[in-house]
């Protein structure tokens, strides 16, 4: 075996314990508490996904109410904009975002929330957020998608009840 200095041994044990604590903290916050990353939702054909068709929400992207205070937002990304560019919901709403791309890769992030997703053509990214404050939020593209990338953003307006 390797000869290890005693002080270094203690240090190694503390380091391993530390990373184990971090691991548990991450596991609990994601799988128990519910701060989860985007997981496989559905796959689509990027060449046809923007075409309106029965049952294809991305053909008519926008906000769909699915229950009291609950919404699904279907957002199409393309160079260099999101459709729709603006969404209005009442305060306290829980919105599930479904985002895909009909051309290159994009990103979707709602600032000051935990909604942050890679948008990959052929895949649908999905995350949920509850808006507890009446204010505006930007959603922005965070993946380089060409020379107009810096203009690609939208706005969520959370209104008083």
């Amino acid at each position: 075996m390797i000869h290890v200095d005693r002080s270094e041994k203690i240090y190694i044990i503390i380091s391993v314990a530390l990373i184990a604590v971090f691991f548990v903290a991450v596991a609990v916050s994601s799988f128990v508490y519910g701060i989860q990353v985007p997981l496989p939702e559905s796959r689509v054909d990027p060449r046809t996904i923007a075409t309106p068709a029965p049952g294809n929400f991305f053909g008519e992207p926008g906000l769909y109410e699915v229950g009291p205070g609950k919404y699904n937002a279907y957002i199409m990304s393309q160079i260099w904009s999101f459709t729709p560019r603006e969404i209005t919901v009442p305060v306290g709403s829980t919105v599930t975002f479904y985002v895909t791309s009909k051309d290159v890769q994009h990103g979707f992030r709602i600032n000051e929330t935990n909604v942050n997703m890679q948008i990959v053509p052929g895949e649908v990214s999905k995350l949920t957020v509850t808006f507890d404050e009446a204010r505006e939020y930007d959603y922005i593209c965070h993946e380089y998608c060409g020379v107009g990338h810096q203009t690609m953003a939208g706005k969520i307006i959370v209104t008083e009840q």
């Binding site: 691991f23 985007p38 997981l39 496989p40 939702e41 997703m117 890679q118 895949e123 990214s125």
Partner: peptide, 20 residues
């Protein structure tokens, strides 16, 4: 690729453990 839509949770988490 934690925030990629096309990779299942178990694989992401396994790679997270190995990264740790």
């Amino acid at each position: 690729q934690y925030l990629d839509p096309g990779v299942p949770a178990g694989w992401k988490f396994l790679h997270g453990l190995l990264t740790y």
